[in-house]
């Protein structure tokens, strides 16, 4: 069981800007990537940070983005370079 996304799934990171403790980096909001690993499920850190249980647990994925998708040419990287982040299911939308 890998939760709502399978390995290889194309996803988009939510564009939202909620206040408080958030574990999805700003530079990836709204970017499109590919699920490359499923880590299991973990208590929601955005709730844990406020003393809540963080339950139900959320599935956590490693999502791969191309540098070009992320920075649109404005950075010091080679054409095939990539960046990944570990993102909880609630931050991902299917493509």
């Amino acid at each position: 069981m890998t939760g709502p996304y399978s390995i290889g799934a194309k996803v988009k990171v939510s564009q939202g800007l909620p206040p408080g403790h958030v574990r999805t980096p700003l530079f990836l909001r709204g970017r499109e990537g590919e699920v490359i690993r499923h880590f299991g499920d973990f208590p929601n850190p955005e709730r844990l940070a406020y003393g809540l249980s963080g339950l139900p647990k959320l599935h956590l994925y490693q999502v791969l983005f191309t540098m070009d998708e992320t920075w649109e040419g404005d950075g010091a990287y080679a054409p095939g370079d990539t960046v990944t982040a570990d993102i909880y299911e609630t931050w991902l939308e299917p493509l």
Binding site: F42, G75, A76, P79, D86
Partner: peptide, 27 residues
């Protein structure tokens, strides 16, 4: 954003055929 620049500062030169994959440890 500029992994190749950082790598160069550490003396690490990699060919363009090597994919540099920056892994952001966010969780």
């Amino acid at each position: 954003r500029e992994p190749r620049a950082i790598l160069a500062e550490f003396g690490t030169e990699l060919p363009e055929t090597t994919e540099v994959r920056v892994v952001d440890s966010t969780a």
